[in-house]
Amino acid sequence: MDPSVLAAMARWPNVPAVYGWLSLTESGQWRLHPAGDAVQQPEAAGEPITSAQILAFIDRNYEVDSAGQWFFQNGPQRVYVRLDAAPYILHTVTDTQTGRLGLRTHTGLDVSEVKALYLDSEGRLYVATERGGALIAGRDLPVVIDALQPAQNPSSVRGETRHAPETMDDAIASCLDSGRTVWVRAPGMRGFAEHGVPLAPVADTQLESLLEFRRLPRGDA
């Protein structure tokens, strides 16, 4: 957090938190809700925040509490965020020196560990990272899928190693159509273990539990 924010928190430690004024969209856009209706009306679109200075301030002071509720620390006050998809929206970045692909959050943080991938029925790809739950931005999804390859599943059934799907199309079909967890790797991307990570099907109702976050924050948490 910004030093000025930490100082304000120390000076005014008991400022009540607020809910319903801020949301994060599926594309990674911060939106303001002047009516304070972001939580009570999850479909309320709000207004885009366009000031580069304000956006940078929110990005730097975005945190999570012990209940998995994400907030923007606005000086001494927590402004809790409605999450339309996940706490972070990920974009692809390319290292200018190595040419290696990586993932970066909408707040500008690089991802160093991809723990698991989750694919929903709409084709959205969610990621468990060391920074928290995330969604691959729609515009970056094709690049990520192209970087993935089927990997050998390290688990065994009756002493026999499960064979990896031959192609990513097979892996995705196995995941979505058969409900199976498959393993994938991404040799050209930072953050992926050499042996790969699990790619599992996921229902919308499972995401908050699996990725440990709360989309609609509430004051009794």
Rank of each mutant, 00 (worst) to 15 (best):
T129Q: 01
K115A: 02
H91G: 15
N61I: 03
G68M: 15
T96S: 13
T92C: 15
T92I: 11
V111W: 13
N153K: 06
I89W: 08
L148C: 08
V157P: 07
Q149N: 09
V127C: 04
Y118K: 04
F57D: 14
L135K: 01
G138Y: 07
A86P: 13
A137H: 12
F71Q: 02
G138M: 05
G123P: 12
K115D: 01
P87Y: 02
Q77H: 05
V114W: 00
Q97R: 03
P150Q: 12
G102M: 01
F71P: 00
L90E: 03
A151D: 10
K115C: 02
T107I: 13
T94V: 13
R139Q: 13
F71G: 00
A67E: 12
R82I: 06
V143W: 10
S156I: 06
L141A: 00
D146N: 06
L119M: 12
R139W: 06
F57W: 14
R124Q: 11
F72P: 11
V127K: 01
I145A: 13
A147M: 04
L135P: 00
Q77G: 02
V64Q: 14
I145L: 15
I145E: 12
Y80A: 08
R78V: 05
D120G: 04
V143K: 15
F57A: 14
Q69F: 05
N61C: 09
R100Q: 14
N153A: 10
T92F: 07
L101E: 07
D140R: 04
L103R: 06
V114R: 00
A85T: 09
E63P: 00
D140A: 15
H91R: 15
D59G: 13
S156D: 01
G99T: 04
V144D: 09
Q97C: 00
F57H: 15
Y88V: 14
R139K: 14
A128K: 10
R78W: 07
A128N: 03
A147F: 03
A137T: 04
V127S: 03
P142Q: 01
R100D: 08
G138T: 08
